[in-house]
Computed example of a mutant assay.
Amino acid sequence: MTEPQPLELNVEHSGAALVVRVAGEIDLATAPEFGTFLRAQLARTRSVLMIELADVAYLGRQAWPC
């Protein structure tokens, strides 16, 4: 069994957009941190928020509680 990858969250600007780059695993343990971080970024922008998930190794259903 492999070790879980820690969640890494970074933000950068690309033109008028705010890009959130996510790496690691989004599971039951990290979903609250991910959600809090996304809500904070949404509050900071009035234009476009993009979420880059290319480096996410695991995305559990807890990441999207809607």
Rank of each mutant, 00 (worst) to 15 (best):
V11I: 15
V11Y: 08
V11T: 15
E12V: 09
H13P: 00
H13S: 11
G15F: 09
G15Y: 09
G15R: 08
A16K: 12
A17L: 05
A17V: 08
L18R: 14
V19W: 08
V20I: 14
V20L: 14
R21N: 07
R21E: 09
A23V: 02
G24Q: 07
I26S: 11
D27I: 02
D27W: 00
L28E: 05
L28W: 06
T30V: 03
T30W: 04
A31H: 00
E33K: 13
T36E: 15
L38C: 10
L38T: 10
R39S: 10
R39P: 00
R39N: 12
Q41S: 08
Q41T: 10
L42S: 11
A43Q: 09
R44S: 14
R44F: 01
T45I: 05
T45L: 09
R46A: 08
R46K: 10
R46S: 11
R46F: 02
V48I: 14
V48G: 05
V48W: 12
L49H: 09
L49T: 10
L49R: 07
L49K: 09
M50F: 07
I51C: 13
I51P: 02
L53P: 02
A54R: 12
D55W: 05
D55Q: 14
D55H: 13
D55S: 12
V56N: 04
L59A: 12
G60N: 03
R61F: 01
Q62R: 07
A63S: 10
A63G: 15
P65N: 06
